[in-house]
Simulated scan of single mutants.
Amino acid sequence: MFQGSSDRPVNTDDLKKLKYLECVIKEALRLFPSVPFFARTICEDCHIKGFKIPKGANAIIVTYALHRDPRYFPEPEEFRPERFLPENSVGRPPYAYIPFSAGLRNCIGQRFALMEEKVVLSSILRKFTIQSLQTREELQPIGELILRPEKGILIKLERRETS
């Protein structure tokens, strides 16, 4: 992941180079968004596919389903981080992928959250290999305030050989 066998902490320059790890994180958030749905109040009358939605109505945005739209994510159940490489994201509407909500009420900490995930994952991956001990089907996600696996996630960490 990083050149050499340094034990130094990851720095900002390292994080900028971890493009594929960022794609992995985004794909994981596509399949399992931390917040699987959120609500918004409609601010003005609008029409969606021939239906009038009145001002004041509540709309529920189900990111878990939105992120599985095959128009924007072919074979949506497949884990494919390459979807988020710049050349593969061209033409995708900005609201097709909203793991941190969108618009005026989006998560103000989303950049920090992505950076934090890259720091933690890169630090772990420098020292360990990770193996899942469950299939995706065994995770049984539960959509409450946050999306979480019903019984947690079992993994195996194995220390990497140091050179």
Results as ranks from 00 to 15, higher is better:
F32S: 14
F32Y: 14
P33L: 08
S34L: 13
S34D: 09
S34E: 08
P36M: 02
P36A: 02
P36S: 03
F37A: 06
F37Q: 10
F37K: 08
F37L: 06
F38V: 01
F38P: 00
F38G: 00
A39C: 06
A39D: 12
A39G: 04
A39V: 06
R40H: 00
R40A: 00
R40G: 01
R40E: 01
T41H: 03
T41Y: 01
T41V: 06
T41A: 09
I42Q: 02
I42D: 05
I42S: 01
I42L: 02
I42P: 06
C43D: 15
C43S: 15
C43Y: 12
C43N: 14
E44N: 08
D45T: 03
D45K: 07
D45A: 13
D45Q: 10
H47S: 15
H47K: 15
H47I: 15
I48F: 14
K49I: 09
K49D: 14
K49P: 13
G50D: 01
G50N: 01
G50S: 03
G50W: 00
F51Y: 15
F51D: 15
F51E: 13
F51A: 15
F51G: 14
K52Y: 05
I53N: 11
I53S: 03
P54Q: 10
P54G: 09
P54A: 07
P54L: 04
P54K: 03
P54I: 00
P54H: 01
K55D: 07
K55T: 02
K55P: 01
K55N: 02
G56A: 01
G56T: 00
G56L: 00
A57M: 06
A57I: 02
N58S: 15
N58Y: 02
N58C: 15
N58G: 12
N58V: 09
A59E: 01
A59L: 04
A59G: 00
I60C: 11
I60K: 07
I60W: 03
I60R: 04
I61L: 03
I61S: 08
V62D: 05
V62W: 05
V62G: 13
V62E: 08
T63G: 11
T63A: 15
T63F: 04
Y64V: 09
Y64M: 05
Y64N: 04
Y64K: 07
Y64R: 05
Y64W: 07
L66F: 04
L66D: 10
L66H: 06
L66S: 14
L66N: 10
H67G: 12
H67P: 04
H67Q: 14
H67N: 12
R68A: 13
R68Q: 09
D69Y: 07
D69H: 06
D69S: 07
D69Q: 04
D69M: 06
P70Y: 09
P70S: 13
P70L: 12
P70H: 10
R71L: 14
R71H: 13
R71C: 14
Y72S: 04
Y72E: 07
Y72T: 03
Y72N: 06
Y72H: 11
F73W: 10
F73I: 05
F73C: 08
F73M: 11
P74A: 11
P74M: 12
E75W: 05
E75V: 10
E75M: 12
P76I: 02
P76H: 02
E77I: 03
E77V: 08
E77G: 08
E77R: 10
E77P: 08
